[in-house]
Design a protein around this nucleic acid. Structure first.
Ligand SMILES: [Zn+2]
Ligand SMILES: [Zn+2]
Ligand SMILES: [Zn+2]
Ligand SMILES: [Zn+2]
Lengths: 164, 164
DNA sequence: ATAAGTTACGTTATAATATAACATTATGCC
DNA sequence: GGCATAATGTTATATTATAACGTAACTTAT
């Protein structure tokens, strides 16, 4: 689980993902409840789909999973994109720009400053948990006011290097 | 012009862009010549289009400019994407992931470690010229081997803050 | 409770971005 | 020239995303 002390890289560590998943879902519910915002069934469905793994998913892949359910089939793209928009704004989900894909946030709360390690081997994406300040320093040195940052490092995780 | 000593942010500084443009074009020609790689007319056309400004352009925008030329019209997407692929591999052009767009590299040579400040006001994109090491440290602390990194900071440049 | 206002969802169509597959032309080498 | 290779051209289609408009569900006021 996320910790602010030690250097964690959840996605690349073996862990009880069921627990990980249910904790993140609870956190999402609590966040919405506390802010008096509606985590509707659709929105929760999309979040749950993203929380199934630490691999990012495309919008149409999410759509496919929603439509795999025999009852209530034939859902169309806007529904998924709207749920994603909601979840992104709350910081419950992040967009992986270099893959046009989406992933559940493992440290819900901080919306605009996430950083990711993206493994080309196992395709998992780990969210770093310390918002590096050096970029902010760089930016402020030239008088730039940061609104949103995208930091996506692609390569091979330790395990995939070993298994090559 | 790019310098490795002072902290520059070319796109946001007033400068003689004609000169900037022609220097970058020359640098590209020299790079290709020295490596015995063919900077064909098409490839150079696409590069020149990207060097027109410090704003990124979508592939179809580039396509539009190519087709604006009355002779040799009706060029199709693959041509642009192939030229871009060539230029990206050489590091003469970068892809701005969060905009699905492309921009000429202002420090030709370093392909995979660029960092950008993207202004929402003037839509210019500045390429930082010191590859920050803190990210690499982060990555190596968890045994991650970096292949390619995307660092895109969106916000407002100093001038756009003043003009708000 | 009902009406009005708002938010979320559903539906259809289409826009914007990107690539697959194959034909043609240009270039370099023998 | 004849051959191999690389680059370009062409057609069709895949993938990702949004516009526009209608319906249903929730919220609040009377
Ligand atoms: Zn997990
Ligand atoms: Zn891996
Ligand atoms: Zn310039
Ligand atoms: Zn600006």
């Amino acid at each position: 689980m996320p910790s602010s002390k030690t250097k964690h890289c959840l996605a690349f560590e073996h862990h009880d993902h069921r627990r990980c998943q249910s904790q993140l879902l609870s956190a999402a519910r609590e966040l919405c409840h506390s802010r008096n915002i509606r985590l509707t069934e659709r929105r929760e469905q999309v979040l749950q789909i993203l929380l199934q793994s630490h691999q990012p998913m495309g919008a149409y892949e999410i759509l496919g999973q929603l439509n795999r359910n025999p009852e209530a089939s034939n859902i169309a793209p806007p529904i998924v994109y709207r749920a994603l928009e909601f979840l992104l704004e709350l910081g419950l989900v992040h967009r992986i720009e270099c893959k046009n894909a989406f992933i559940g946030c493992v440290h819900p709360g901080h919306a605009s400053t996430a950083q990711f390690l993206i493994c080309k081997g196992c395709e998992k994406v780990a969210e770093l948990d310390n918002p590096t300040t050096s970029l902010q320093q760089e930016a402020s040195q030239v008088g730039f006011m940061i609104d949103h940052s995208v930091v996506e490092i692609t390569g091979l995780c330790a395990e995939c290097q070993a298994n090559d």
